[in-house]
């Protein structure tokens, strides 16, 4: 195949960002006449492969190996490098997840192939896709150019493609294997854990009221909370609010918190650092209230208000409560 999408396992389900990568592969595949394959690997490879076979792609590869049952950068790096060598795709697509950031540079170094990471968009040049990434605190965009014509590894930023546009179909499944020497696995992983139990699942929330540093002080969170209660929204925040200890970390949206895509994301006093933006840019409607007219988050807003949230929010709550 021409494009190979490597899936990430999320408790037996295909990771949302892998679905976005499949969507991207389908779109780029049809635009540039490239065939698409999907690689399901690890302890849940069979379950992932069943799900992947429901999509409109040419082929699904299933890879099971005792050294891949638990994630290690040693094992996953070695396995993906071997699969890429054997299948020789033109492009290998990933979601730009934390796991991908951890092991795909190893694949790049093993194969001496470029890893164009965190791509946000593509364009067409000379009949080929050219991928771009954000640089310098997302203030500039640069095209990433491989220096020769071999396989390219590419990871896509969250919401570069919308998984709602994924095309269903049916695909053949082929089992493949790799040789991993147990001496290569020099890492032992323990089970994942959460530091605070009882978190809210913001990823399925329809309405989110989110607060940032601009809220000023801890007491003002109550204003946002009252607005959220009135419209039945969940409360979320950017990292500074959590770092200040004003909200528990499970309310955090962004690269080190949750990724959300609600119908309404109301951002109160959030300036829009890239670490926050990647967690919420997939929201359907973004409304930004901020005192600073230069806050970068206004660029993403559907509706923007330059003003003091402390004046606006209580009156908004009152008006919506009627």
């Amino acid at each position: 195949m021409d494009i190979l999408v490597v899936l990430e396992d999320k408790n037996g389900m295909i990771h949302r960002m892998s679905q976005e990568a499949i969507t991207g592969a389908q779109r780029i595949g049809s635009e540039f006449n490239l065939s698409v394959g999907i690689l399901a690997m690890g302890g849940n490879a069979a379950a992932l492969s069943d799900q992947a076979a429901q999509y409109d792609v040419n082929e699904v590869l299933t890879l099971e190996n005792e050294h891949l049952n638990h994630y290690t950068a040693d094992g996953y790096g070695a396995a993906v490098a071997q699969v890429v060598t054997n299948e020789n795709p033109k492009y290998v697509f990933f979601g730009h997840t934390y796991q991908v950031r951890d092991y795909v540079p190893r694949v790049s170094a093993k194969l001496k192939r470029p890893f164009l990471n965190d791509a946000v968009s593509y364009s067409s040049e000379g009949g080929n896709p050219v991928f771009s990434k954000q640089v310098l605190n997302a203030k500039l965009v640069a095209a990433l150019q491989p220096n020769d014509g071999g396989t390219i590894l590419i990871s896509f930023q969250s919401a570069a493609f919308s998984s709602e546009n994924i095309q269903s179909g049916s695909a053949n499944v082929r089992s493949i294997s790799v040789d991993i020497d147990s001496a290569e696995i020099k890492t032992v992983t323990e089970d994942p854990f959460q530091e605070e139990a009882g978190g809210v699942d913001l990823s399925s929330a329809e309405l989110i009221v989110s607060i940032g540093r601009g809220i000023g002080k801890e007491e003002n969170i109550l204003l946002a909370q009252e607005l959220a209660n009135t419209i039945g929204a969940e409360i979320a925040s950017s990292r500074p609010v959590v770092d200040s200890g004003w909200l528990p970390s499970h309310h955090q949206v962004g690269s080190s918190g949750q990724t959300v895509s609600p119908k309404l994301y109301l951002a109160l006093g959030i300036s829009g650092a890239i670490q926050h933006v990647v967690g919420m840019k997939g929201s359907k409607n973004i409304v930004v209230i901020n005192k600073d007219p230069d806050a970068p988050l206004f660029e993403l807003a559907d509706y923007g208000v330059v003003g003091d949230m402390l004046e606006i929010v209580p009156k908004l709550t009152e008006a919506l409560d009627r």
Binding site: V130, L140, A142, P146
Partner: peptide, 26 residues
């Protein structure tokens, strides 16, 4: 293995409708 090709200022991704006026109007 790779290089940058063309650097440009990030363009606004969306048409933002700015809501202006007094607090009550907003």
């Amino acid at each position: 293995l790779q290089s940058f090709n063309g650097l440009s200022v990030q363009r606004a991704e969306k048409q933002t409708e700015m809501i202006e006026g007094t607090v009550d109007q907003v």
